[in-house]
Every structure is written in structure tokens, then in C-alpha cells.
């Protein structure tokens, strides 16, 4: 009976993780797409030197970070996958979301400063373990770069 109970808890968590995880992900992607369209004017490049027509701009560093957490379903699929080997598809969308969200937050900061472009973009990804040794808890993605702000002539 003990095994049955354990299995029941496990399946419940799996089901909850799947339903809510899918819903959260779909909703997140929807807002990401919407905001990406809104921020399209703030060009993001990872080149070190500013484009010639923006050379006279002021510069300042901007960054955006986000911590996204996995759901139980993703962790279980990834746990099984790590036994067999191969591509961990369940984590790919998580990282994709994290990175796009981090860029968006960085763009938002740049926009508030009145910037026209962000150059020299860099990414930093780190793992924040929720439960020690229990695989992936959540990940932090940081995006940072240099914002180019037009100088207002006096």
C-alpha cells in the first residue's frame, strides 16, 4: 500500500506539473512575442563597436535578468532523459524563454533611458538549485550590454 501511495503522489505531482507548466509556458510565450514586437525599435547587437551613425551617442550599461523555474513534469522527463542520453527537449524551451525574457527586460531598461540601441550584448546563465542534489531547481539568465542614448543638444 505504501508503494501505491507513493505512486499516487508522484502521478498527481506529474499531472499538476504538466497542466500548470504548459499553461504558464504558453502564457509566457504570448507576452514575450507581444513585447518583442513592441521593443523592436531598440536594436540589440553583440558587436563591440557602435554603428557609425550612433557614434556620437552617450553610453551606459543596461542589464536584465530573470529566474525561471522548472515544473515537476519537466524535471521527471529530464531525469529519464539523463539515463538514456540525448537532447533534453524539456529544458530547451525553458532556457529559450529565460533568454528572451532577459533581453526584453534589458531592452525595457534601455527604453526607459531613451536609448536607440544596445551593443555588445552578453549572456550569463547560472543554475539556482531549489533542492540540493535534486537536479535543476531553477535557472537565472542575465543579459547585459551597452545602451546608446542620443545626446540632446543644448
Amino acid at each position: 500500500m505504501d508503494v501505491l501511495f507513493q505512486l499516487g503522489v508522484f502521478i498527481t505531482l506529474l499531472f499538476l506539473g504538466y497542466v500548470f507548466g504548459r499553461r504558464a509556458e504558453a502564457r509566457h510565450y504570448k507576452t514575450i512575442r507581444m513585447r518583442e514586437r513592441a521593443f523592436r525599435k531598440i536594436v540589440v547587437l553583440n558587436e563591440r563597436f557602435p554603428p557609425p551613425h550612433l557614434c556620437q551617442h552617450q553610453s551606459t550599461m543596461v542589464c536584465g535578468n530573470v529566474v525561471v523555474s522548472v515544473d515537476y513534469f519537466k524535471v521527471v522527463v529530464a531525469g529519464l532523459r539523463s539515463l538514456v542520453g540525448g537532447r533534453m527537449t524539456s529544458y530547451e524551451s525553458l532556457l529559450d524563454r529565460g533568454r528572451r525574457e532577459a533581453i526584453l527586460r534589458m531592452q525595457n531598461e534601455a527604453k526607459n533611458l531613451g536609448a536607440e540601441a544596445v551593443i555588445n550584448l552578453k549572456f550569463e546563465t547560472s543554475q539556482i538549485s531549489g533542492q540540493a542534489g535534486q537536479g535543476l531547481g531553477s535557472i537565472e539568465v542575465l543579459a547585459y550590454g551597452t545602451a546608446l542614448i542620443p545626446v540632446i543638444p543644448e
Binding site: 547587437l45 539515463l83 538514456v84
Partner: peptide, 30 residues
């Protein structure tokens, strides 16, 4: 230089296969 960010296709960095199908295949295999 571009005047706005490009619109990239969505399905390159994430796989489009259904997560449940992935899960079932793994479960049966393992």
C-alpha cells in the same frame, strides 16, 4: 545597420515534438 530587430523563426531553438509523446517514449524505454 538594421533599424529594428529581426523577427526570428520560433522553432529553431526549441523542439516542436509534443512533451507527452517524449515522456511516454522515455517511460517505456527506461
Amino acid at each position: 545597420y538594421p533599424s529594428e530587430n529581426p523577427q526570428l523563426p520560433e522553432d529553431i531553438n526549441i523542439s516542436t515534438s509534443h512533451p507527452l509523446k517524449d515522456f511516454l517514449v522515455l517511460l517505456v524505454g527506461v
